[in-house]
Design a protein around this nucleic acid. Structure first.
Lengths: 132, 132
DNA sequence: ATAGGTGCAAAGTCTTTGCGCTTAA
DNA sequence: TTAAGCGCAAAGACTTTGCACCTAT
């Protein structure tokens, strides 16, 4: 699986994630696996999920904490991977995406959230400062 | 501001949110406002943010908890507003969005997350069951 | 007057972490 | 052998909530 030492628990967690389509939470994985492996600990699940995602084998989906915006018109955002700041993006709302999504799924699509990420202008400038 | 009784604190919180572009967290708002209003409580900030967002005056941005996905190829998701389930969407990754975003902002855009929301097929079916 | 709102603090939920034991290499 | 990894439980971070007091209506 990677450069780290093998661990049965990590393998279990990764396999469980590979074989589900439910995008489970850490708690869900823990409950599933605990049935077969009663002495598995929740801490181990979290540790391995963090490890796997830092290696790029799995993906985490979420913001760390809630953020609020008084501009309720649908618009997209940019979140800096480096400092965590959130900026508005000056882009239109792409209604066409909702229509395409509605056509491609059995669900009632009511809208979408579009969050870009990368390195914000400020963090990029700081990095230049360090290297020069 | 709305159908509820007026409250100075709610007004403060809403005004603070209207006049910033920082997409603050509850804690950030609390710290800002506490400087001028030392007896403001964090609980009140949370209560009013929830109230304002339930009225549609502000927007919350986040998932309630982290979710994990073993499919690391960039792809979009659908989250049910009703039951919270998360599904994969059968749509391509829209690279053009990243290019457009890069052109419209000073940031280094490295990718995006696209999350549709609405009512999933299962919840929609259950609702039909109730009404019939 | 009175019901909705507040401040405070306790409780709850989700996640991380320290420590001593276990186990892959 | 030995250090990465585990289980357990405590601690941390973030959010909600119960209760007595306050205040807009």
């Amino acid at each position: 699986m990677s450069g780290k030492r093998y661990s049965r628990q990590r393998e279990l967690i990764y396999q469980a994630l590979l074989h589900t389509r439910e995008h489970p939470t850490a708690e869900m994985l823990y409950q599933w696996l605990k049935a077969e492996h009663p002495n598995l600990s929740l801490g181990t699940v979290y540790r391995n999920l963090n490890l796997l995602s830092s290696e790029g084998l799995i993906t985490r989906m979420a913001f760390p904490v809630e953020r609020y915006d008084a501009d309720t018109r649908p618009h997209s955002h940019f979140r800096c991977d480096c400092c965590g700041a959130v900026y508005d993006m000056d882009l239109p709302y792409f209604q066409a995406l909702d229509e395409q999504a509605a056509g491609a799924s059995p669900h009632q699509v009511e809208g979408h959230e579009l969050i870009f990420h990368g390195r914000c202008a400020r963090c990029a400038a700081e990095d230049l400062g360090k290297t020069s």
